[in-house]
Every structure is written in C-alpha cells, then in structure tokens.
Simulated scan of single mutants.
Amino acid sequence: MIKQLKAGLAGIALCAASGIADASIDLRFAPLSQTADAIEIGLRISGLGDDALGTYDFNIQFDPTHLAFASVAFGDPFLGDELDVFDLGGNSVAADLLAPGVLNLFESSLDEPADLQALQADSFTLAIIRFNVLSSGSSELELLINSLADAGGDALSANTAPLTVNPVAAVPLPGMFWPMVAGFCVALKRLRV
C-alpha cells in the first residue's frame, strides 16, 4: 500500500514537472490605442524558447454592454504573421462571434515545422483586435485557451491573465453656435459701456 502511494506521488510530481517546461509561455493582452470611439488590443505570446507555435484556438470574453467587436488583424505589426513566416497568406484563420461577448480567434500554420522552428520569433503579437466603444465603464477581457500547439502539433500550455480596460465613450458636445453668439453679445455690451 505504501509503495503504491509513493508511486502515485512520484507520478504526480513527474506530471507537475512536465508542465513546468511550458509554464514560461505567456499569452497577454496589450492595449495599443484608444479613442472615444474604439480601442485596439494586441494579443501577444512570449517565452516560446525552443518551441514554435503552429496553431491556436482562443475564446476572448468581453462585456458586450461596453464593447462591440469590430475587426481583427492577424499577425505582428512589425514582424508580420509569425505563423506564416514566408508571408504566403495560405494559413487558415477565423475570427467569429460565438455569442454576445465571446469572440473566437483561430489560426493554423501551413508552414513546415522546421521553417517555423528556424524562423519564428520567441515573442510576437498574434493578432490586433479592434473593439468599438459602446459605453463608458470598466470591461474585463479574458482569454480562454481551447487549443495551443507547437509546430509539430504537440499541445502547449501557457499562462494567461485578464485585462481590464476602461473605455470612455464620446460625450456629445453642445453646438458651438449659441455659445459663440452669447460670447459675441457679451463682448459687444462691454464695448458699448
């Protein structure tokens, strides 16, 4: 009985240690720009080390009362699409709203594993997501990993963290005609006195 318990504990320790190799991979949201009408968020991966990313499938949850999905641009703005290292444009990509407040992002590389391994950067932006701002207030973006695999198709694990954004909706300004008329009238009165 004690031998079985020790063997079980050793197995748990080995399983826990095997996950540590992938624990250095991080997936993070990075706010890029914000206006009163829209906000752009980058989804970055870092810490790939000796691994190369071959495919991913994520769900991004957001508050649909504050934000509305507008568009997505796959790839890094400076490095290009690192899952398409030769920029041939043949990758399978998708960005779909599954439900209000749930955006699914998917990309699968068609490049050879050796090419991804040799040419892919250790850290890069996977996609830039643009949301329209519907109303002011705090909104949390949460990343759920459906699948994440290396160039050979083996599963990877990664650390994730939510991001809280505080979009500020545009405040309608009053028409400028009447304030200008009022100011003009005050200036005329002062000139007459």
Score class of each variant (00 low, 15 high):
residue 26 D to W: 05
residue 141 L to K: 01
residue 51 D to H: 14
residue 131 F to T: 02
residue 75 G to E: 07
residue 155 A to I: 02
residue 13 A to V: 04
residue 121 A to M: 09
residue 128 I to K: 03
residue 176 M to I: 11
residue 6 K to Y: 10
residue 59 N to Y: 12
residue 87 D to I: 00
residue 71 S to H: 05
residue 172 P to T: 06
residue 140 E to P: 03
residue 24 S to L: 07
residue 90 G to A: 11
residue 39 I to Y: 02
residue 61 Q to H: 14
residue 138 S to R: 07
residue 102 V to R: 02
residue 1 M to F: 08
residue 21 A to F: 14
residue 91 N to T: 04
residue 135 S to Q: 14
residue 8 G to I: 09
residue 189 K to P: 03
residue 45 I to K: 06
residue 12 I to L: 15
residue 178 W to E: 14
residue 23 A to Y: 09
residue 146 N to S: 07
residue 191 L to S: 04
residue 22 D to S: 13
residue 28 R to C: 04
residue 188 L to W: 11
residue 20 I to L: 12
residue 138 S to L: 10
residue 184 F to L: 15
residue 56 Y to S: 06
residue 136 S to I: 02
residue 16 A to T: 06
residue 115 D to H: 06
residue 11 G to Q: 14
residue 116 L to Y: 01
residue 44 R to T: 10
residue 173 L to R: 11
residue 142 E to A: 15
residue 131 F to G: 04
residue 98 L to Y: 05
residue 84 D to L: 07
residue 123 S to I: 00
residue 164 T to F: 02
residue 173 L to S: 10
residue 42 G to W: 02
residue 139 S to D: 09
residue 125 T to K: 01
residue 11 G to S: 15
residue 8 G to P: 00
residue 115 D to R: 08
residue 103 L to W: 02
residue 57 D to T: 07
residue 182 A to M: 14
residue 138 S to I: 04
residue 146 N to D: 07
residue 170 A to N: 10
residue 158 A to I: 00
residue 92 S to T: 11
residue 54 G to T: 06
residue 19 G to D: 03
residue 193 V to A: 14
residue 78 F to Q: 15
residue 155 A to Y: 04
residue 39 I to E: 09
residue 39 I to K: 03
residue 160 T to G: 03
